[in-house]
Design a protein around this nucleic acid. Sequence first.
DNA 1: GCTAACCTGGACCAACGAGTCCAGAAAGCG
DNA 2: CGCTTTCTGGACTCGTTGGTCCAGGTTAGC
Lengths: 202, 202
Amino acid sequence: MPTATKPRLTTKGAATRRRIVEGAAAEIRERGATATTLDDVCARTRTSKSQIFHYFPGGKEELLLAVAAREAERVLEDQQPHLSELTSWPAWQNWRDAVIRRYRRQGMHCPLGVLITELGRGTPAAQELTARLIEQWQAELRAGLEHMQRAGEINPVLDADRTAAALVATIQGGVTILMSTGRITHLEAALDTTLDLLRATA
Amino acid sequence: MPTATKPRLTTKGAATRRRIVEGAAAEIRERGATATTLDDVCARTRTSKSQIFHYFPGGKEELLLAVAAREAERVLEDQQPHLSELTSWPAWQNWRDAVIRRYRRQGMHCPLGVLITELGRGTPAAQELTARLIEQWQAELRAGLEHMQRAGEINPVLDADRTAAALVATIQGGVTILMSTGRITHLEAALDTTLDLLRATA
DNA sequence: GCTAACCTGGACCAACGAGTCCAGAAAGCG
DNA sequence: CGCTTTCTGGACTCGTTGGTCCAGGTTAGC
């Protein structure tokens, strides 16, 4: 992708751009990516199509990608500060609560889930984005797991990286089920069960 | 839903109907549900729109639902006979292998994943379908877990139903990650880790 | 305040895709 | 056969949607 002389944004321009991304994100959360039209975004953000194409020359795909990037950040942000301080079982519990709280609040409107399933497949850029997010998430969990292993709270025989991968998958699965059935029970059960099993290895 | 005098199908009609469902399923597997158009299905199955509306008066939504129902069956079928005989650790391993094999072969083209994420949200009928599938899957796993508990191979303190829910979520999450990144590593790691942890509770 | 950028509104277009209609072929059945 | 019902092809409508264009307004910086 040739960076093609990106135009400098005015403060006003930057604000509009941000408004578009936020508005699109909200719309997508509520109705899904494919169901969200550019006109919807225009109406919600009080802008016109020309703006959208001004800030996102690549059209809808580029906008969606920008939204996805924003939401990916938010996924990790919403788990902080707990995610970076998984140094004791109470800390893990706090993190667990934060995760559940986040998804309980969002209900079936998981922004990232929508993105990675509706746009993720197909475009390599989106795949890359998703892979990066998962990688980062997994790395943080791994750090927490290793800390617990050093503290003797988790069996050191376990492969921390694979276990972290399992945790990420567990959450993702719970969220997928939440999105497609509306019930959060599986997410809770999955997360709690896995943590219980880990605790039991000490 | 008033069953509205369903027309009797001739053998030829039934065959055509089946051909449409199969063709639509294949198309959806490759390109996603929203990206699949009725014209695509027509072209692939050598039929015309009038056929589709003849057999699925509800239009695309009804067709998608029929495909989803078919794929839901297949999900469970593909795990048999292992899923119903989880009575020993080797049996569990066979089941695990069957699951991995299935998804490795399908790669990113998970039919049901596509359906439940692209159609599942929104229409209550699809939600119901998904819920039913998960419930059934979970029930089979729970039976296996309880058997292992009675055999003293898994700690009887564990709540078998919640653990089964965790397993389902684990797989679903691994599959979601597979679909959005193309890597099967998380599915393997998640499933293996969970099974290892269960084994360790004996 | 003047010039050259950036920014905005809204009309317009072309493509596409779901769904409709109807005439006619092909079964079922007495 | 002859009559009814089911089945099939394909042309047609029509709303939607991503994307274009351009004229006019606004901001930055000298």
